[in-house]
Simulated assay, not measured.
Amino acid sequence: MSANAFVYTELQASLPFADVPWDKLNDAIAVQPGFVDKTWFSGLGNNSVGGLYGFASVDDALLYCTDFFPALARDFGVAQTTRVFDNKATAEASAAMDAPHFGGQVTAEPGAFVYTEVQVAVPFENAPWQDRNPVLRRQKGLLSKTWLSGHNTNTLGGLDAFDTVENALDFAINEFPITTATMNAAFYTRVFDARVTEAASRGLNSPYYL
């Protein structure tokens, strides 16, 4: 089963990943309708907990965001963030950046992930990804990029896999703000330590690991 939609989640919690009951949660997540895979996230510097999920359809993704995940946040007693993305429009752009959900081969395991989202409404077919991809290819330490286009919002963003936390931070802090300034738009960036979540991600078929 292929992933035709993505879900981004993040809990407003500070919990070292070693203390997250991910094995129990993996069992519950794996049986959700349309679930394909999950890459776990642990917030660098704040220990937030979240992930990027693949679902078979947008409807399955929306069900997860309106039913299962809010109940999970209530169990933790924290606020939460969810986003839904339709993969169809971004498939070509993501495949061109070696995104593992779109046929890209993992040649090195990630040390960090960067999630980005820009506060614009641009249908992805009008997004200048053909110009942006070559620039991203020159970004130090970038392993792959999965482009994201917001369901019902057309926000632009992505999940970028980096070889090290240091290179991920350089991109999030120094490089990405330059890009968004040219767009005259506010933006959202998050950096996640991919090393501490490897076992949990492997347990839910994350395609980012060898």
Rank of each mutant, 00 (worst) to 15 (best):
T90E: 07
L62I: 12
T81Y: 11
Y64I: 01
T9W: 05
G54A: 08
D67A: 11
S57C: 11
D59I: 09
F17D: 04
V36R: 13
A91Y: 10
L44V: 05
L63M: 09
V78W: 02
L63N: 15
R74D: 15
A13Y: 03
R74I: 05
K38D: 09
D60W: 06
F17R: 00
F55G: 02
A91Q: 14
F68L: 06
S14C: 07
A56Q: 15
C65V: 01
T66C: 00
E10W: 10
A89V: 14
S57Y: 05
S57F: 03
Q12N: 15
L11G: 08
G45V: 06
T9K: 08
W22G: 02
A71I: 04
D59E: 15
Y53F: 12
V58G: 08
S14N: 13
K24V: 14
G43M: 06
K38C: 14
D37H: 14
S14K: 11
N46M: 03
K24C: 00
E92H: 12
S42Q: 05
Y64H: 12
G51D: 03
L11E: 08
G45P: 04
R83G: 08
D37V: 07
A71E: 15
D27A: 15
D59K: 14
V20C: 03
T9N: 12
W40Y: 09
L62P: 03
D27P: 00
L25Q: 09
G43S: 06
R83I: 01
G51V: 03
G51I: 02
G34I: 12
A56G: 12
I29V: 15
V36Y: 11
G54N: 07
V49R: 02
F41S: 05
A79P: 00
R74Y: 02
N47E: 07
V20K: 02
D75I: 04
D19C: 02
T90S: 13
A18D: 10
K24F: 06
F85G: 02
D60I: 10
V49A: 03
V31M: 00
S14P: 06
F17N: 00
Q32I: 06
G54Q: 04
F17H: 01
A71W: 00
Q32M: 07
N87Q: 11
G54L: 05
A91P: 03
A79E: 15
A13K: 06
F85W: 08
F17M: 05
D37G: 11
L44F: 13
Q12S: 15
A30M: 00
V36G: 08
N47I: 00
G43H: 04
F76S: 05
V20A: 07
G54I: 08
L72P: 09
P33K: 12
G43Y: 04
S42V: 01
L63G: 12
N47F: 04
F85D: 01
V31L: 02
A91G: 02
P70M: 09
N87F: 09
T82R: 00
G51P: 04
D86T: 10
A91T: 14
F17K: 00
W40K: 11
D59V: 13
N46K: 09
E10L: 09
C65E: 02
A71F: 01
V20T: 07
Y53I: 00
W40H: 13
R83Q: 11
V84L: 08
A71Q: 15
L52M: 13
I29G: 01
A13Q: 12
D23S: 11
T81H: 14
F35V: 05
F68E: 04
T66W: 03
G77M: 07
V84Q: 04
V20S: 01
